[in-house]
Nucleic acid binder design. Structure first.
Lengths: 352, 352
DNA sequence: CTGTTAGCGCATTCAG
DNA sequence: CTGAATGCGCTAACAG
């Protein structure tokens, strides 16, 4: 039988409100009864019913997190950052996975709404602009990680890296290294998924700045997964003029591409230089270790959570005031052996 | 302003109980009013308050999942399986991360209790036997993935692979290949974490069966992460008689170890054969691709969730009846180039 | 400092 | 088929 404050009130010989006060360290109870009540609660194995509490306080101390798939190392890291910041502030995380489909993402948000979460964080959302409507419906702040809105240019609340800059850094690195035919393997195609396009934009800019005419044939489709990278490689090697370097949407893609290249007996970086994006843990353990654009994943998660926290506290006030806000975090180039000589002899160069 | 069934009752000109019935498809409402109410609810942007509902139904349709760290690919995959099975049955997942510390794990369970989850699933728990007490306190079924209890030999409800068999398969493979000096790199040390010890047991058995005397010097500590594998390598190469093959607690460890070996200019598998455990996605993309013991991670998650589901429905009855139950899932050896010749020429052999 | 009273939003009797 | 009344466990006034 579950014990409630009523039960402990009865056996303590006080009213249930006194118990409530004691348990919540209200100033309106004598030190004596507080101790007695707390001791009793402990002894009786009491566990506060947060459902009941939330019903009256109108706060659940819970945030919903929506990912496309938890399996992606990038996602896991960001989620970890969210988790850390969350339970640092006594918040709980409800995790939802959209499995890449917009419908499931919508369903997840709706479910979070009915669970009355205090806020929601979406990573690499697939429904984009629709959130603007949802944000009104859900009556809780929504912060988005790594998306920009097509229409307005950005969501009300976002944290993201400067993807364009990242793409620029990657391509410029290759150019400086001497490559002229540099390919780009894109990420998952999705209407409102701008990160790949932004990286592509930076890549183009770097080429043009150096007087290289971007060749559309060198831009091929990927899907953010290793198999996409493998297919991209096949597409690239069959070109009349194959690239000497490839910039991949992310590390997973690069991993697949490198695997395919090795199977084709190409050596990296001699025959083909490769740059990834994300700097996931395994990047430095690949052979050769992967040059990549590092994103502060944990930090991004923390930033997003903190942003949500502040929106949840000041709510109405600052929310209406600022109206919109965007946190840009820094990304940086981490140079490893997949683009330059025998650097993996020196493991101290490993980033992350 | 949030709209409740009262609101929609008022504007519909009926009582709120009628609205409740209509929304829940009770047979006790005319088809006409049901439609009218539902239409209205939709129009008014109604979202059922699950908190209130759960307060009376005493069910939250929520399970808590406790992991040590979501960053580990093995964990992510299992969680994904749980997710899939969960929302196939309309359940929600609350994710907690213990960050490897028992205290946080206890805190997580306590928090889940106060959120009144209908069940909890723990992956690679670090507090072991203590769960037996908790299971009574929490008043909800607890199923454990990949642990055995030291005292009783097993937890009340578990799903796990036969770690001993997996270890046996790995070592036997190396023996058959011709190796005699075979090392083992252990997993994270933890009082109630039996998986590493079981794998070690199977490894020993395979050696002994073949007439090889297990050499304690060949068993070194790891921590389940790449850096642990790197350190283990250093320990092993400095041995008077270094091993010619290594069986690692998991793929992450193997990844680190291979990295260190490459830096030391050893070639794999010629100088050193390596076997991992888990068969995470990247295993087949490493260079050379990693031979490993494959666990059906998604399936394990699904099994655990289904087990929890059945415990939650029949509760009292079957729970008391069966008292305890353990699901064993199959693991298998996936042979790749880290132990045998130029097999990576044939990518079709890739498992997972 | 403490007890009494309300009510959060909903499901569920019990009477019609 | 429908409405009125009750209570889930808790916090928050409001009176003592």
């Amino acid at each position: 039988m579950r014990v409630s404050i009523k039960d402990i009130a009865r056996t303590a010989g006080v009213s249930h409100s006194t118990v409530s006060r004691a348990l919540n360290d209200s100033a309106l109870v004598s030190e004596a009864t507080r101790r007695r009540v707390k001791h009793l609660a402990e002894k009786m194995g009491y566990s506060p019913n947060t459902l009941a509490r939330s019903l009256v306080t109108r706060r659940t101390d819970t945030v919903g997190v929506v990912v496309t798939t938890i399996t992606d190392p990038f996602m896991s890291e960001v989620v970890k950052g969210i988790q850390l910041a969350a339970d640092e502030h006594g918040y709980t995380v409800i995790l939802c996975s959209s499995e890449e489909t917009p419908e499931r993402e919508m369903a997840a948000v709706e479910m979070l709404r009915s669970k009355r979460v205090d806020g929601v964080i979406c990573i690499a959302s697939r429904i984009g602009a629709l959130y603007l409507d949802h944000q009104e419906r859900i009556d809780a702040p929504v912060v988005i990680i790594n998306n920009h809105n097509e229409q307005t240019g950005r969501y009300p609340f976002t944290v993201s890296v400067d993807n364009r800059h990242g793409g620029y850094l990657a391509a410029r690195h290759l150019v400086q290294k001497g490559d002229r035919r540099i390919a780009y393997v894109s990420g998952p195609a999705a209407v409102n998924h701008s990160s790949s396009r932004d990286r592509l934009g930076g890549y183009r800019q770097a080429l043009i700045e150096t007087g290289i005419e971007p060749d559309p044939a060198l831009v091929v489709d990927g899907n953010g997964c290793p198999d996409g990278g493998e297919r991209a490689f096949e597409a690239l090697v069959t070109l009349r003029e194959p690239p000497t370097a490839v910039f991949c949407y992310n590390d997973m893609t690069a991993m697949g591409l490198m695997h395919a290249a090795r199977r084709a007996s190409l050596s990296i970086p001699e025959d083909l230089a490769v740059v990834g994006y994300d700097d996931i843990l395994l990047a430095s353990y690949l052979s050769p270790p992967l040059t990549t654009i590092s994103q502060p994943k944990i930090e991004m998660g923390q930033r997003a959570m903190r942003m949500a926290l502040s929106l949840m506290s000041d709510e109405g006030a600052s929310k209406e005031m600022s109206g919109t806000s965007e946190a840009l975090v820094q990304c940086r180039l981490v140079t490893r052996a997949s683009t330059v000589g025998r650097q993996d002899k020196n493991p101290r160069a490993v980033g992350s």
